[in-house]
Nucleic acid binder design. Structure first.
Lengths: 232, 232
DNA sequence: TTATATTGTTTCTATTTGAAACAATAGTAG
DNA sequence: CTACTATTGTTTCAAATAGAAACAATATAA
């Protein structure tokens, strides 16, 4: 039986909106439960003696293998519309458990986090209750269980309004990247094309980038510089 | 015995940073526990069938008598440093309860909210566990229990960065106010003096104010207009 | 009627932002 | 080797915004 009652705080969960960037589009990691056509955000529970932030980091590590990634808490969801034990009961029944009083069937207040990770580095792993985890284009998400679509919406809203303050810890890109790639990330997140010249001026003005050697891609044109984020 | 176990979600609480404005200084409502020299933010618990937002509204109503006030969730605090049952035990013992297994002595993850209310309209009432509730200058707060000083700091940070987007629902001022009073609110929140002319231009440009009759205060000088927020 | 304190508005300047043009350059094709 | 092209890096110019100061209006008191 997964999730023993004594180990976890009841009624409290977290859900994480994990953003990746394919080179063109913004992606989100979505779970699917076996044979149920039910989609959900990857989430989890908090152990009784575990800090909330640590629980979220643990869950993310278990799913992606990544450590020290950028995690941001953005909102806590506590409406009663969240309470729909039928989905969870079905999931448990699929696994051979027929309990009406399992704590996992209770009402949950969930803390929403988002993470920005390097799409290329990740081989997502399903968790105890689900069977598949896949990247989806953020604008082509399936219908998610309970209020998870709303959670995604709010995560993106938060990310957009805080993009400039948050980019120091950017993990969406590899260590070295071109200005064009950085702009593509902005374009994808903000949903609109930035002006090339002004974007470059602004980014260089922020004084957060280190310029490295040029990247000779073989194309018959000027080679772009590679950049990295200054580490402070 | 207050707070029956079956009525509330265990391990989850909320704390509210209630801002008021005295006409000059930004104030915060702080509780004091009887004979204990322990100061804390007003907070509370969530009933098992109650939406989180409703619980916070209920608590605020019970303390201030105010309804329909501006409430904003800003962060959820879940570190283990929050776990210090000794304070709660003492508070219960002051009231004649000597229980080691009361759920209120457990670990709590707390959701932080802030509210902006009209300082003049409020007669704060203590709750079941505390005996006094008072306005304190936000920059002269006493040392608060657990991480409550940190919660205040984060609330103010959030309020400052979102001030322009949030002011439509401003409750810090009475229905009618002068431009000078509005500027004083901004000065107090942001901790720096705004330029008078530019502030006026900016506020009028936002198109959120209705201008009313002049306010004749009796001073020997030009009388200021009164304004109210447009109700859209 | 004049003086004074304050408020409302305008003017001028500096800074920031947005769009376009220009300059540089790594290949490709002759 | 020389044009040619695609793309990147930079500069220039105009438009919008923000900051500071000056100016204008006015409610009361002397």
């Amino acid at each position: 039986m997964p999730f023993s009652e004594v180990d976890y705080l009841p009624n409290l969960s977290y859900d994480s909106v994990i953003f990746g960037f394919s080179g063109e589009k913004l992606k989100i990691l979505i779970l699917e439960y076996h044979n149920m056509k039910t989609f959900a955000l990857p989430g989890g529970f908090v152990k009784v003696d575990e800090p909330l932030d640590a629980a979220v980091k643990r869950g993310l590590y278990e799913r992606t293998g990544l450590e020290e990634i950028y995690l941001e808490q953005f909102h806590t969801f506590g409406s009663m519309e969240r309470f729909d034990p039928s989905v969870m009961r079905k999931i448990l029944e699929e696994q051979g458990h027929f309990l009406d009083d399992h704590w996992i069937l209770g009402r949950f207040v969930t803390v929403g986090y988002y993470a920005l990770i390097d799409y290329e580095k990740v081989v997502p792993k399903p968790d105890q209750l689900s069977d598949s985890i896949e990247w989806y284009d953020f604008d082509e998400l399936p219908e998610l269980m309970m209020d998870h679509n709303e959670i995604v919406r709010k995560a993106l809203e938060h990310l957009r309004t805080h993009l400039d303050q948050k980019l120091l810890s950017f993990n969406l890109l590899p260590e070295l990247f071109t200005m064009k790639e950085l702009k593509q990330v902005y374009d994808a997140i903000l949903g609109e094309t930035q002006n090339r010249a002004n974007f470059q001026r602004k980014m260089l003005g922020l004084n957060i980038l280190t310029r490295h050697e040029k990247l000779y891609s073989g194309g018959s044109h000027k080679a772009p510089y590679l950049y990295s984020f200054k580490n402070t």
